[in-house]
Amino acid sequence: MKIAVCVKQVPDTWAEKRLRPADSLLDRESAEGVLNELDEYAVEEALKIQEAHGGEVTIVSMGPERAVETIRKALSMGADAGIHIVDDALSGSDALATSAVLAGVLKDRGFDLIIFGSESTDARMSVVPAMVSERLGLPQLTFAQKVDVNGGTITIERQTDYGFDSVEASSPVVVSVVEKINEPRYPSFKGIMAAKKKPLETLSVADAGVAAGSVGTGAAWSVVADFAARPPKAAGTIVNDEGAGGVKIAEFLATNKII
């Protein structure tokens, strides 16, 4: 089973994020770059499937030079090889361009499973897995809280508002996973050492078969007109509970016509 896991480097989940005034792009320098949290679950799921069914796990990431740290992190968890798409032309790419580049890289490599985290903690659009599925014409098994592999048949539990749907498709497929699915492993010291020697392929936009003019800020089909910090919230009323705290909340809600 050939498995690709697409990962993204994002600012640390716990850090305050901001946009750069000059170009309205995410300020990636202001916070430590980490492997997108939900992608850790994708890597873990790939490794579990590999342990049960054999095969190879390849990490694919599009991002600036330093995104290579994120690929190494995934390799240190146990993945076999990495592909890094790095190109100045990519800066400011929207989800449409990102999905085109990923699809270009993934398409002729014979992957049976292409696994994503269900969203990135910075952009939070949750659209790239569906877009890659659309571009490659592959079945979309997204928002999986459980993945079962049975030969060429892949079955997932797709998380929904009411519970889950059981969904079935024949490989190759595109999968995205939610955090409920597993508990990602920590890289071992041995894993970290081994990751340094694992094969890493570096590709340009042209290598992905995509024209440089169709990616990046200039080619984005949506643009940020302006942005501003949210105005600070006026301080609310804070009281100590001296036995009537619940009643006081009820009075506040009644004054505001909530109850």
Partner: peptide, 15 residues
């Protein structure tokens, strides 16, 4: 409203 509501962004579709 992005980054957990800390930033307000105005965006337009251009294509």
């Amino acid at each position: 409203s992005v980054f957990g509501g800390s930033t307000i962004v105005h965006s337009t579709v251009t294509h």
